[in-house]
Amino acid sequence: MLERKLLLVSGKGGVGKSAVTASLALRASRGGKKVLAIGMVDGFGLAAHLGAEEFKHEPHEVLPGVFTFAVDRSRSLDEYLKIQLRVPRSVPTRQFSKAANVLVDTAPGIREIISMGKPIFEVWKATYDIVIVDAPPLGQLLSYLRAPATIADLVPAGAIRQQAEEMRRALADPATAGLLLVTTLEELPVLETVEALSALEAERLIDGVGIVANRVLAPLGLAADPADVPDGPHRDAALLHEHLLDEQRLWASRLGDHDTLPFLFGLLTPGEVAARLADAWVET
């Protein structure tokens, strides 16, 4: 999956999407690639997992070969208007930007296309070997991926439409872009992942490169049944572990083919979490 030029990482909120994104950025840079990791919605999680104290809106190197920034919509809008749409200099930009900002808040698809455009422009610039994106969570992902088509439906002609069409093609091209879905082995994340996959396959908006199950527990390997352990916290903790493991097995069977990443115990910093996950990437 790290062969793509653009890798989007999404999943239900709370499954560890930013940590997995950061771990992939680390893995790519360990393989000698120059990596750009983009936080599309919440820059903080991604920056923290890359060991940065705070997030910035300009690409900067946080680890050798790993650059990152968080998308800022108003800046992206400016860039979109000036660079991508080549709005002529004669246009009073401030007034136009103000109007455009208002438009962005009202017209469907424009906000999304501006955020979605940013990683795609970075791919077109070809400054990096791979662009890895901490994408919006599953609930919003489809409206972002559909944004180019939304715009194309809405706008009959002109530069925006042309731009949107090029974006749609870039996203849908398996040689360029791919989507990794992250989930935990719990009811809601698995069901939402399965549902999103079928919608994505039906609409062919982007090529799926796989699913990874995060926070997967290892078997305890007890000789005896934990229920036979004498009463006390050792028994309770063993029962908890076995119970969670059973739940995970159940939901793993509903998920279909997937890779796994381990549950990390202990008090780890976000940077440590990403590094441990990068070590743990095992294709199953």
Partner: peptide
Amino acid sequence: AANAPPPDGRDALALRDNLRRWGE
């Protein structure tokens, strides 16, 4: 409780480690 001795038996170590992890 993570520091308390686990019940005797073959699973003592596994039970201790497990409670330590969940204790954390």
